[in-house]
Simulated assay, not measured.
Amino acid sequence: MPQGFHRGRRLRRTPALRDLVREHSVDAGDLIQPYFVDELLDSHAVSPIGSMPGQFRYGEKALVDEAARLADAGVGGVILFGIPKEKDAIGSQGFAAEGIVQRSIAAIKARVPQLLVMTDVCCCEYTSHGHCGQLCGEDVENDATLRLLQQTAVSHARAGADIVAPSDMMDGRVAAIRQALDAAGFPQIPVLSYAVKYASGFYGPFREAADSTPAFGDRASYQMDPANVREALREAQADVDEGADMLMVKPGMPYLDIVRLLRDRFPHPLFVYQVSGEYAMIKAAAQLGWLDEKRVALESLLAFKRAGADGILTYFAKDFASLK
């Protein structure tokens, strides 16, 4: 063997050595658990989501109990998605003062004030047509939708949300929301922008869970083309210029190159969303005995951190302790 020959295995020989030189790690505090709160359910009820084993729609009181357990586990926080009793053309329950998400925010903060509550700011869960804004014919009208998003963000802040996260991909939404929050007396509430959100096929199980499948067409006219990279930089830069405090890439695993690109370009806190389809694939393969669920779930979370994400929205968050 040549003198000085590299022996990488020296540092892999024991668990203690591997722990000592490990470059990246995932902690419970890095994770955000998405929750679906359903106004149609009895307050204490939970309803399983067929395409997302282990995930549920929650009644209001059941959600608060679940949030308390999550806080005890040390998970970083939650993001809330609402399913209202009634939907209309502009998604008015999304910004109603006593809407399902607004009530849930207040109830969680009353029970576990230390738990970070993030909210999804979009219209798709609340509109009768399932699109992410106000329609003109069959097209989502950008500037009219901005007004709805402003109302939604302010209503969430008034209810006690710690972070608002617009996911609609309307042009100018971050500036509009920042202006509305400041004018309403909430300059301290940060905006986590879904800066780079692709028109992905990985959202299918979420649309079942949130009852938000478009009644016609798709969302390709406002979400990004999966083929595009440079566009991601333009979108992220626009949101930074408009006042975004944090950035997010969605989906996660198919877009690790985009996570790395944004990490290298922007100093802002960077999040990634491990979406419903990613979660469902791991769960389905594990149920068939094709994958080790714990090992693959942890490996996928490490991949996000290795690519440069500071935080991860993932349906594995609540089970993270049992995965380790």
Rank of each mutant, 00 (worst) to 15 (best):
Q3H: 00
K109Q: 01
S155F: 00
F5D: 00
E60K: 04
P269Y: 08
P190Q: 03
Q134H: 07
A89C: 13
I312Y: 05
R147Y: 04
D241V: 04
Y222F: 14
Y198V: 03
A284I: 06
A297L: 05
E39P: 06
G243S: 05
F320P: 00
A309G: 14
A68N: 05
R306Q: 09
V140W: 05
A97M: 03
F304P: 03
P187Q: 05
K283W: 12
K324D: 01
M1Y: 03
D65K: 03
K87D: 09
F202G: 05
E141M: 14
G29V: 10
D225V: 05
E231S: 10
L233T: 11
Q114E: 15
S322M: 10
A195Q: 04
L40M: 13
F206K: 13
A161V: 05
L301P: 10
L63W: 01
Y315F: 15
L40C: 14
D257V: 01
D171M: 05
G204A: 12
L301S: 06
E98V: 07
E293W: 08
K294A: 15
G99L: 06
Q237H: 08
F266K: 01
S212G: 09
Q3P: 03
G133H: 08
E23L: 12
N228L: 13
A232H: 02
S47K: 15
R219E: 10
G82L: 06
S200M: 07
R12W: 11
V240D: 01
F95I: 02
R111K: 13
I83K: 14
S221E: 14
A280Q: 14
M1T: 07
Y279Q: 10
Q237F: 03
P34L: 03
F186H: 02
H24M: 06
D19W: 06
D65C: 00
Y222W: 14
A321V: 05
K61Q: 11
F266C: 08
K250G: 12
D27G: 10
A215H: 12
L261Q: 14
E299G: 05
I163V: 15
A175E: 03
E293Q: 14
T152K: 07
S200Q: 13
D65W: 00
R10T: 06
A215T: 14
D143E: 10
F304E: 09
A144F: 14
L301Y: 12
C122S: 13
A161C: 05
L302I: 11
F271S: 11
D42T: 09
V46P: 00
A220S: 12
R7T: 08
D168K: 08
Y194H: 13
K197Y: 01
Q151F: 02
E39R: 15
A153I: 03
A71V: 02
P214N: 13
F81E: 02
R265L: 08
S25C: 10
L261H: 12
L323H: 02
L288K: 09
Y315A: 09
V101S: 03
A71L: 06
V272N: 09
R69P: 06
K318G: 05
L313S: 11
P48G: 00
R7S: 04
S212F: 12
R230A: 10
Y126N: 11
A227S: 13
D38A: 02
M246R: 07
D218G: 07
R265Q: 15
L291A: 15
L135G: 08
K283H: 08
Q33G: 09
K305W: 07
V154R: 01
G82W: 00
L41R: 02
G50A: 15
I83A: 11
E60T: 12
A199T: 06
L63Y: 00
I100W: 08
